[in-house]
């Protein structure tokens, strides 16, 4: 087997199982990705891993793009694609199958009760997710204050586009850092 294929296979074999193990927060996932890429496979040094993590935080996206960056570091664009697909495909297939089964029960008393019962929990989990992100943010109390102010602004003026708020808040922090430095 050629080396590059072997590398891609190794990437897939690391990230595909993680796809199905990452329940709840991404924090556990992060520790395991670090262990695998620095310790087990020596794909990155400790320092490179820290840099890639910083970059992954800078990019937008629905989850961690850290696997993409590690794939890229190890095997270029095909590595990036392999690691991304490996991390997101298995969990997506699982939720796809589950949601399809679940929708078959639509219309029954139980289906509606479960949906209505899960709704307040889902709302609570969304709020808890915001708290979790706030807690791990390196910005500290300034980030908390800006987050609460943003919440109030969005609720008070629904027509305000969040991107405008993102830009304003980013600019404010950037200027403050410039003045402090």
């Amino acid at each position: 087997m050629p080396d590059d294929i072997r590398t891609l296979l190794a990437l897939a074999l690391v990230f595909a199982p993680l796809s199905l193990l990452s329940i709840g927060s991404g924090a556990a996932l992060l520790a395991e990705i670090e262990h695998q890429s620095v310790g087990v496979h020596a794909w990155t040094t400790q320092r490179e891993f820290a840099d890639l993590f910083a970059i992954s935080r800078a990019a937008p996206g629905p989850g961690t793009m850290l696997s993409t960056l590690i794939g890229w570091k190890v095997a270029g664009l095909t590595g990036a694609l392999t690691a991304t697909v490996a991390l997101y495909l298995p969990s997506s297939l699982l939720v796809f199958g589950t949601a399809r089964l679940w929708r078959r029960w639509r219309g029954s008393v139980w289906h509606s009760a479960v949906e209505r019962g899960l709704a307040p929990i889902a709302a609570g989990l969304i709020l808890a997710g915001g708290i979790a992100v706030m807690r791990v943010s390196p910005g500290g109390p300034a980030v908390w204050a800006a987050a609460i102010a943003s919440t109030a602004l969005i609720l008070r003026w629904p027509s305000l586009h969040p991107l405008a708020l993102f830009a304003a808040s980013g600019a404010l922090f950037g200027v403050a850092a410039g003045l402090a430095g």
């Binding site: 709020l127 910005g139 609460i148 919440t151 602004l153 993102f166 600019a171």
Partner: peptide, 26 residues
């Protein structure tokens, strides 16, 4: 340093969007 600060600011507003969504749903 400035890039990190800007990202903190953007993240703060994103957290605000998350909170606002949760509160709206309640």
């Amino acid at each position: 340093v400035t890039v990190h600060a800007i990202l903190d600011g953007v993240a703060a507003a994103a957290i605000g969007l998350t909170f606002a969504t949760g509160l709206k749903l309640v």
